[in-house]
Simulated assay, not measured.
Amino acid sequence: MRPALFLCYPKCSTCRKAAKWLEENNIEVASRNIATDNPDEKELSVWIEKSGLPIARFFNTSGNIYKENNLKEKVKTASEEELLGILASNGMVVKRPVLVTDDLVLVGFNEEQWSEKLK
């Protein structure tokens, strides 16, 4: 099995906590800095479908870009195409960390959920 893709922002404490958890649980990952190598629309579309989550869950709602651009309202009314464009425009808009394996996508770090899904 190939390593999971771990999208993170190195300065994010939640991402560092998730990375530590992955290491402690011997889960091999290929890390990617979401700020410098943000996902494109095609990747995001595949991940959203695979995750089974609504597209709104992929937005970093506590980030400055989300707040400054009033994305809370936009997420409610915009088409999925528009929202994919916004997410792909800047990795900092995407909720992190994101863990992508062959058969699942986890968004945000929840230790209980990750333990259940990955062990």
Rank of each mutant, 00 (worst) to 15 (best):
G52S: 04
L5Q: 15
V100Q: 02
L106V: 07
I86Y: 08
Y9R: 07
D102K: 12
I65H: 09
V46L: 11
N33Y: 05
S79I: 06
R2A: 10
N70P: 00
F58M: 10
N38H: 04
A18Q: 09
P3V: 05
P54N: 14
K11D: 10
A30I: 11
N110L: 07
V105W: 04
E24V: 01
D102G: 07
K20W: 09
E43L: 03
E28Q: 09
L104S: 04
P39N: 01
V46W: 11
V93I: 15
K67R: 11
K117S: 14
I65Q: 12
A18F: 10
L104A: 00
V29D: 15
T77I: 13
L106P: 02
A56T: 15
M92V: 14
L22I: 04
D103P: 00
P3D: 12
S45E: 15
E49A: 06
E43D: 14
R2I: 07
E73P: 00
P54E: 15
C8K: 15
N60D: 12
K76T: 09
L71T: 10
G85K: 09
E68H: 03
K119L: 13
N69K: 11
L22M: 05
A35F: 03
T77G: 05
V29E: 11
F109C: 06
G108Q: 12
K42W: 11
A19W: 14
W114H: 07
L106Q: 08
N38D: 02
E24T: 02
T101C: 05
S31F: 11
V98G: 01
I27K: 08
E24P: 00
T61Q: 13
N25G: 01
L104W: 01
S89H: 08
A56P: 10
Y9P: 00
M92L: 15
K74Q: 12
E41T: 14
T14S: 13
K11W: 07
W47R: 00
C12F: 13
V46P: 01
V107W: 00
E23H: 08
I48S: 05
A19I: 06
C8V: 07
N70W: 04
N26E: 13
V100I: 14
P10V: 12
M92C: 10
I86T: 12
A4N: 08
E49H: 11
F6L: 14
C8S: 13
E49N: 10
P39K: 00
N69Y: 09
L71Q: 06
I55T: 09
G91C: 03
K117C: 14
Y66G: 02
P54K: 12
E81R: 13
L71Y: 15
D102R: 13
E23G: 01
K74M: 12
R16V: 03
G85A: 08
P39A: 03
F59P: 08
N26V: 00
N90G: 00
P3I: 09
V98F: 04
V105C: 05
I65M: 11
L7F: 15
N64A: 08
A56R: 15
N64P: 00
W114M: 09
Y66C: 01
I27C: 06
S51W: 09
G85M: 08
E111G: 02
T36A: 02
E82C: 01
